[in-house]
């Protein structure tokens, strides 16, 4: 049995690790170099250094300097952070729900955030208020699902999943209601634009909250990564191994929800990444979360950078991210499944 018995050799593990770490860096560099507005690599480099060495930026056209520093850089950083966030939370949720078919949206955070954003667009129309509402309603949805599930005593995980689906549907319907009452010429396009998910309106002002929440969250997920193995065995076994599963899960749900809400509130709804990246990660490094968590974080970041690079450069019009995540992600995953091992 060549494939299953082969111990992942130290060399192979190291190579995979270096590749996974290098990929986001390469794609990040590409994100700064590529764009619809032609800027030479040297100019990009000098633009990046110009805040520190103003002399370097002296002979670069102002428009190029601004595009690199104020448009490409924050957008690439956002893609990196949001991708890492989706990858990491997806892996964590799949572990604690013992189910490889969920992502951090299972408890309705995206539906809640979508509703919050739609509500703010309908009533207030201010960018930071939309973000605030999206964030708050994302948390509210998960809170409802979580405390709703406490009403039932049996099989907490199943009830929690069910409540998540219920709350998600509820907020989905409420969003549809808002879309129904929204002015088709006025508010509706804004709501639709937001719900489709896009990184095109990212600016530096979107970043501080996103970066703060995501970096702390990713660090937490990285720390707790090995413990996810134990949580994925189920509550009884985890307790027998001296782990308090309820407390650990609550912490993870809170952190992942904060991260997802922060991501959704700046980018709108980008599906698919959190669900599929952990699968790809498992095929590359195996199911042990000690390696899988960093792999999912890095692969999520790489994937979203790749997708966004395509989305913003291929055509004059932005290609919706949701379209590309599927179009690019499915063949990549199929390829990995073909060469990968069996089981999750």
């Amino acid at each position: 049995m060549p494939s299953t018995n082969a111990a992942p050799s130290r060399l192979k593990t190291t190579i995979t690790g270096i590749a996974l770490a290098a990929l986001p860096a390469i794609l990040f560099a590409l994100a700064l170099l590529l764009g619809r507005y032609p800027i030479g690599p040297l100019d990009v480099g000098r633009s990046l250094l110009s805040p520190i060495f103003p002399k370097l930026g002296a002979d670069i056209p102002e428009i190029a300097r601004r595009l690199v520093l104020r448009v490409r850089l924050p957008r690439a950083l956002a893609a990196l952070l949001i991708g890492a966030s989706y990858g990491g939370t997806g892996a964590a949720f799949q572990a604690i729900f013992k189910n490889p078919l969920v992502d951090s949206n299972i408890l309705g955070v995206t539906s809640g955030a979508g509703f919050g954003a739609a509500l703010a667009l309908l009533l207030l129309r201010n960018e930071w208020q939309v973000q605030l509402f999206a964030f708050a309603f994302g948390l509210l949805a998960v809170g409802l699902a979580f405390f709703g599930s406490r009403l039932y005593k049996s099989s907490p995980l199943l009830v929690l999943t069910l409540m998540g689906i219920l709350v998600g549907s509820l907020f989905g319907s409420l969003t549809s209601l808002l879309k129904y009452v929204a002015d088709p010429l006025d508010t509706l396009p804004a709501i639709t634009f937001w719900l489709l998910g896009s990184l095109s309106s990212i600016t530096w002002s979107s970043l501080p909250v996103l970066a703060f929440v995501t970096l702390l969250g990713v660090f937490f997920l990285w720390l707790i990564r090995w413990r996810l193995n134990i949580l994925s065995l189920g509550d009884a076994e985890a307790r027998a191994l001296g782990v308090n599963p309820a407390r650990s899960k609550l912490c993870i749900i809170i952190v992942a929800t904060l991260m997802t809400a922060a991501a959704v509130s700046v980018s709108g709804v980008i599906g698919w990444v959190g669900l599929v990246i952990p699968h790809a990660g498992r095929l590359l490094v195996g199911p042990d979360h000690k390696r899988l968590m960093p792999a999912s974080i890095l692969m999520g970041a790489s994937f979203l950078l790749l997708i966004d690079n395509i989305a913003r450069t291929l055509l004059p019009g932005e290609i919706p991210l949701g379209v590309l995540t599927g179009l690019v992600g499915v063949p990549v995953l199929a390829l990995l499944l073909r060469r990968g091992r069996r089981g999750w």
Binding site: Y37, I63, R312, G317
Partner: peptide, 13 residues
């Protein structure tokens, strides 16, 4: 209507 990014608009200027 088409969604574009700022960079594209800058390219059109």
């Amino acid at each position: 209507w088409n969604d574009v990014n700022l960079e594209q608009i800058a390219a059109w200027d």
